[in-house]
Design a protein around this nucleic acid. Structure first.
Length: 417
RNA sequence: GUGAGUGUAGCUCAGCUGGUUAGAGUGCCUGACUGUGGCUCAGGAUGUCGAGGGUUCGAACCCCUUCACUCACCCCA
């Protein structure tokens, strides 16, 4: 084989496409019922769109971005996530001038240079939503409820909704200090990764799976205890609203976000039925980001669903392999030409009609009809051409009906199927 | 970037402590059935044994290198 696909990308073939379309359709319908409108953005941006917002020292920026120089020596990056480009577009197109909340959704590929793994790819697809201009926790509750509706509509079960608040510019530093104070004298018990995390991103120590670290951080102060008045109230109201909306969730104070721009609400949905990469969707509030992008101070909240994370959870029965409504099997050259004409007439009426191009035995043509899942078949030979009548055979119940060899006669039969 | 596992037919995989001509199942094609499918039966096609090097009288099998895939760590949807 001369060429192979790049590491971490995948070819999505027709049997799987029906699953993708199912998800996209369900999600789109629910988005629109909540007033979210589709937005389509470029898959590449100026590199600094990401470095500033995601955080210079985050793993994504440090080692996972597909970045290259274009012919004009500009640094370009294939988007590793959807929110930063969205905020760029939001500001650039002055979308904040529309009445708040402004609500958008998108579906498309993201790119991260990571080692591929089960349910993790270098090119992966996200379905995302962003709601701008409102900082009321009712909106937080509503968007989480919408996410829940989408996942439910797709038929996912055994999901865990976890939420927390990671505070804001005011209260988070206090908490980080408190956490570091707590961990300081336990540093020897932590794994080497956590030793590093202690310096770069102490919050990360909270979700380390190494048993020694789990033990060492026992009794560590929870973030929610350190929230300022504003963040604390926000979080409390969010919880109340979620209860009223009947969204089952748990509070996980050690939930950590990988991106720097998040404030207050952070949430994640995971599945017990995936491998190690169990997060199917995640999101949070980003109240400072629009201003950082040069727009007016505007709160925002959003989430993204990982397509590749939900697809393995979907029932395989959605993988359909449809066949044509009619396969025309000609015997001989004259019949073959006549077949083309009939097929064209039926297609013009919107029917899926195939013509068999192999001039082989009727047996082998019917075998083929069976294999491609044709619903009906007509055999077109010398007799049929002469009498202008054909037997239209239903492949499922084996019945045959003699009809005139004319498109509208055939049409009548096809329609009743 | 780190660690482990796996590469044999289109697909799933056998192939003993190295032994001569590399197999099975499934799928594919054809026929039995002169113009009627699925079942059955018979026949047929398809492999640089991932690649390169080495050891050996002899390598799919042992050794080295390399590539690819998979899973996990890191991190994340």
């Amino acid at each position: 084989m001369k060429y192979r696909k790049l590491k971490g990308v995948q070819d999505i073939l027709p049997p799987d496409i029906s699953v993708w379309q199912f998800i996209e359709e369900k999600a789109g319908n629910i988005f629109r019922s909540y007033g979210y409108r589709e937005i389509r953005l470029p898959i590449m941006e100026s590199t600094d769109v990401f470095t500033r917002s995601i955080g210079e020292t985050s793993d994504i920026v440090e080692k996972e971005m597909y970045t290259f120089q274009d012919k004009g020596n500009r640094s370009i990056t294939l988007r590793p996530e959807g929110t930063a480009p969205f905020v760029r577009a939001y500001v650039e197109n002055h979308l904040y001038n529309e009445p708040a909340p402004q609500k958008y959704y998108y579906m498309g590929p993201m790119f991260r240079y990571e080692r591929p793994q089960a349910n993790r790819y270098r090119q992966f697809y996200q379905i995302g939503a962003e709601a701008m201009g409102i900082d009321d926790p009712k909106l937080d509750a509503e968007i989480i409820s919408m996410l829940s509706s989408i996942l439910e509509a797709i038929g996912l079960k055994e999901l865990n909704f976890e939420i927390t608040s990671i505070g804001c510019k005011e209260c988070r530093p206090d908490y980080i200090k408190a956490l570091k104070d707590f961990l300081e004298d336990k540093l020897i018990d932590l794994c080497s990764d956590c030793g590093r995390r202690f310096k770069t991103n102490p919050l990360r120590v909270l979700d380390c799976k190494v048993p020694g670290c789990v033990k060492a951080r026992k009794g560590s102060p929870p973030m929610v205890d350190y929230l300022c008045k504003d963040c604390g109230d926000h979080f409390e109201q969010l919880n109340n609203n979620l209860k009223k909306l009947n969204v089952q969730h748990t509070i996980n104070p050690s939930l950590v976000r990988g991106l720097d721009y998040y404030t207050k609400t952070a949430f994640e949905v995971s599945s017990e039925n995936l491998g190690s990469q169990s997060a199917v969707a995640a999101g949070g509030r980003y109240d400072g980001m629009v201003k950082e992008f040069g727009g007016p101070a505007t709160p925002g909240i959003g989430f993204a669903i990982g397509m590749e994370r939900i697809i393995p959870l979907i029932n395989d029965s959605l993988k359909t392999t449809d066949g044509p409504e009619l396969l025309i099997c000609p015997l001989g050259e004259e019949a073959a030409e006549e077949s083309l004409i009939i097929a064209e007439q039926l297609r013009a009426k919107g029917h899926w009609v195939e013509v068999n191009y192999d001039n082989t035995s009727i047996r082998s043509q019917l075998r083929k009809a069976n294999r491609i899942g044709a619903k009906n078949v007509i055999v077109l030979g010398d007799d049929e051409l002469e009498n202008r009548k054909v037997a239209l055979k239903n492949m499922t119940d084996k019945t045959e009906q003699i009809v005139a060899l004319a498109s509208d006669e055939l049409l009548k039969i096809l329609k009743t199927d």
